[in-house]
């Protein structure tokens, strides 16, 4: 047989070794920085987790249902109430709240980076060109691969999960923001310029409001990706629904897997409907809807 030769490849690029060395160097060099990051992220996550899990279940659930009613209406509120009842019924409430805290912390930080980056990319073609391959890389790299270096740097727990989630969820936030700003009718931007508006005012009063529906769609994507990554973070030992999913996988426990998985689905639907409802509440979307009536 001739296949024996395949054990000796023609050449071998030691890319993996290089990354490994790089991560090791980074870890030892920026130790203090990473400690700082860890403290901040952990502080935010623990604080939020306490808010969600500290008070009695019914109070937290009612607040979340109330938010649903305020953003969308009674239909979403009823749906959320039923969903949360199911989560409580399968004893996944604590896990769901831990996951929610992780999603919110990671999603918020991802957006704080992604939106300004998207605005800069919309104004600078060179930056936009440089960002594109980086964003492609971030979005297509298998999600749990991010967990490996973050575990090396931050050890196990919620923090590697949060960091990996931020990296993974960043890309659509940047992309949608850039797309939204670039898509604003150039004549309206010209109008701002023609009446002597400063670039800052044009950004604040014309570009961002007009791009808001698209940016909100980006926010929705960031949140949804954060949730999917938060579940994978269970592999790194982050608390929440993900950890039970991983445990169920390891023990081939169909029952637990289904219950924890259902919790993820319900949480995903809640977050998706909430963020799309927020997009519909953008002033521009509302103004255009008025015209259709």
């Amino acid at each position: 047989m001739t296949y024996a030769a395949s054990t000796e490849p023609l050449y071998r690029l030691p890319l993996g070794d290089w990354v490994d060395t790089a991560i090791a160097t980074i870890t030892s060099t920026f130790d203090g920085f990473f400690d700082g990051v860890k403290t901040v992220l952990l502080g935010g996550y623990d604080g939020l987790a306490l808010v969600f899990t500290g008070p009695p279940v019914w109070i937290v659930a009612l607040v979340l249902v109330g938010l649903a009613f305020w953003t969308k209406g009674w239909k979403l509120a009823v749906g959320a109430l039923v969903g949360f009842a199911v989560i409580v019924g399968v004893d996944q409430w604590e896990n769901a709240m831990a996951t929610l805290a992780l999603v919110i912390v990671a999603g918020a930080i991802a957006l704080m980076i992604a939106i300004p980056l998207g605005i800069l990319a919309a104004r600078n073609d060179r930056l936009s060109g440089a960002l594109r391959p980086v964003l492609d890389f971030m979005q297509t790299m298998p999600a749990f691969v991010y967990l490996i270096p973050t575990v090396v740097i931050f050890l196990t727990g919620a923090v590697p999960g949060i960091v990996a989630t931020i990296v993974f969820a960043l890309a659509p936030g940047v992309r949608f923001t850039e797309l939204g700003i670039r898509g604003v009718d150039s004549e309206v931007v010209e109008a701002g310029q023609a009446f002597g508006a400063t670039p800052g005012r044009i950004l604040r009063q014309i570009q961002i409001p007009l791009a808001l529906p698209t940016i909100m769609a980006g926010i929705n994507q960031v949140i949804m990706l954060s949730l999917s990554m938060a579940v994978i973070s269970g592999l790194a030992g982050a608390e929440g629904l993900g950890r039970d999913v991983v445990a169920a996988l390891a023990r081939v426990d169909v029952a637990l897997g289904f219950e924890a998985g259902l919790g993820v689905v319900i949480l995903a639907m809640y977050l998706d409907r909430m963020t799309s409802a927020l997009a519909d509440r953008a002033p521009v979307s509302r103004a255009l809807k008025l015209a259709a009536v």
Binding site: V188, A194, F195, G196, I206, P209, L210, P283, A287
Partner: peptide, 18 residues
């Protein structure tokens, strides 16, 4: 100059929809 001297009307109106 744009604030004080010269203003403009656009083909597709260029109004702020919101």
């Amino acid at each position: 100059i744009r604030r004080k001297r010269v203003s403009m009307v656009f083909q597709h109106f260029a109004l702020l929809p919101h």
